[in-house]
């Protein structure tokens, strides 16, 4: 068993004091390829957002350990990017070099070579000068994956990376994910295609505000677990009483 890359300590996340992720505990090992699955509203994207530092926990904490402590690459859902912004594909992908070039550094010959390689790996050769507003959804997603390649991070967070893209693109991107896993990077992906998870992800965490099941994908994604997750995620009470479980946890 590898050392942990992430540790969730009694983690509660939410909005307006209503928990979306409730008292989550556990860890993610370095080099894991983990699928976060669950119904809509189960807290998958919220958890990923919090790992990325976008959302502060209501209670508990997330510890990023070892190599991943300060280095991660985060691919939020597509709506996060302004596709109408007047920059080219090369500009968008080159953002992935931020760690090397920072605010002021030039991209240089090495950076340009890496940029060309990344575009080649996602099948976007020749698209360098295209404005991002002229790309299809799948092409834009390929460009965002090329940016992830350049970020070269030990922890990669993917939020619904295959939404609204064709089967060919899903296949190509899934191969990149497998390569990252083979390279020993930790990859956590929010996914809805359960068959894809069973085939490509050795581990899964089934979430419905709290952990329903965690372990090997094929065992986690049983009909009984999925049914339980569906019921728990749907339960929402505007006038729910105050939770005192933090006292129990302590």
């Amino acid at each position: 068993m590898n050392a942990p890359a992430l540790v969730f300590e009694n983690l509660t996340l939410g909005y307006d004091r209503h928990p979306v992720v409730h008292h989550l505990k556990g860890d993610v090992a370095e080099g894991a390829l983990l699928a976060l699955v669950g119904p809509n509203g189960a807290g998958k994207s919220t958890l990923l957002k919090s790992i990325a530092g976008e959302l502060r926990p209501i209670e508990g904490s997330i510890r990023r350990c070892g190599d991943v402590a300060g280095r991660f690459a985060y691919l939020p859902q597509q709506s996060a990017i302004d596709a109408g912004f007047p920059i080219t594909v090369a500009d968008l992908v080159a953002m992935g070099l931020w760690r090397d070039v920072g605010l002021f550094g030039g991209i240089g010959r090495t950076g340009r070579r890496r940029l060309a390689e990344a575009l080649g790996q996602v099948g976007l050769e020749g698209f360098e000068r295209r404005p991002i507003g002229t790309l299809s959804g799948g092409q834009l997603q390929r460009a965002r994956f090329a940016r992830l390649l350049l970020q070269d991070a030990p922890l990669i967070l993917l939020d619904e990376p295959y939404t609204a893209v064709d089967a060919q693109t899903v296949g190509d991107m899934a191969m990149l994910v497998q390569r990252w896993h083979a390279e020993g990077r930790t990859v956590i992906a929010v996914l809805h295609d359960l068959e894809h998870v069973r085939q490509h992800y050795p581990e899964a965490l089934l979430l419905a505000r709290e952990t329903i099941a965690r372990g090997a994908s094929r065992e986690v994604l049983s009909i009984a677990n999925l049914e339980r997750a569906r019921h728990l995620a749907a339960a929402f009470d505007e006038h729910a009483p105050v939770c005192h479980r933090h006292a129990e946890a302590a």
Binding site: A52, G53, Y74, I81, D82, L92, M95
Partner: peptide, 23 residues
């Protein structure tokens, strides 16, 4: 001139800027 790169990122993809930098 000094903040151009950060400002472009802040406008085009603020979530990405937050993930790579405190700028």
């Amino acid at each position: 001139a000094i903040g151009y790169r950060a400002l472009v990122l802040e406008c085009a993809d603020p979530a990405f800027l937050r993930s790579v930098s405190g700028a």
